[in-house]
Amino acid sequence: MAIYDLKAPFRDEDICALRIGDQVTLTGEAFTCRSKLQRTVFDENKKLPDRYRPIRTLIHTGPIVNVYQDRYELVSFMPTSSVRFEKWGARSVREWNLQVIVGKTTMGPDTMAAMKAYHCVHLSPQSVSPNLWLDSIRILGVNWFDEMGSIEAPWLLELDRLGPFVVDIDTEGNNLFDEMDLHVQENKLNVYKSLGIPEDFKPTKLH
C-alpha cells in the first residue's frame, strides 16, 4: 500500500487519489471535535468561529492538555471513536468543507455518502501510541474552552507529519473495515465448527 505525506492545503485530486488501506501522514492545521462542538454549532446554531473556517482537517479526539498561564501542554493524544458522532457527520463534512476526518471505528452510511459527494476521507490509527505522536502536534489555541472544557473544546492544532494513519473510508465510498469484516465473518463460521456450535443453532428466546 502507498504511503502519502499530505500537506495542507490539500488538492482535491490528492484526496480523491487515496484508497482504503493507504497510509497517510498529515501536515498543516487541524481542529479537534467531540459531540459538544457539533451540538453547539448544529443544534444550537452557534457560529463556528471564523478562525476555523479555512481548516479542512477534523480530528475526533479528547486530549489531555495542561493549561498554564502562558502556554498549553499537550500531555496525551489519541484519535477517538467516530461512530458516536455519526448524527452530525454528514453536516460536518458538508458545512465545514472537510477533506480529512481522523478518528476511530470508521463512520456510518450517511457520513460515507457525504464523504463521497464532497470528497473527504476518514483515517484511523493502527496503534495506540500517543507518545509517538505528541512531537508532531503543536497547540495553536482554543475557543469555547470555558463552556466546553479541555476534552471537548475545539483545539486548533498545527500538525507536522502526524501519523501514519490508514485510510478506512475513501472518496469512492469504500470502507476498509467493511471488507475486513467480511473475512472475519467467514472465519467465524469455522470457529463455530471448531467449538461444536451447529450452523443451525438458535439460542432460546427468554424474553
Partner: peptide
C-alpha cells in the same frame, strides 16, 4: 511495535499510556 514503544515512553515520562 508502535504501541509497545509508546508504552515504554509512558513509563519513562510518567504520562498516561492513553488519554482515555
Amino acid at each position: 511495535d508502535q504501541t509497545i514503544r509508546s508504552l515504554y515512553l509512558s513509563r519513562d515520562r510518567q504520562v498516561p499510556a492513553c488519554p482515555d
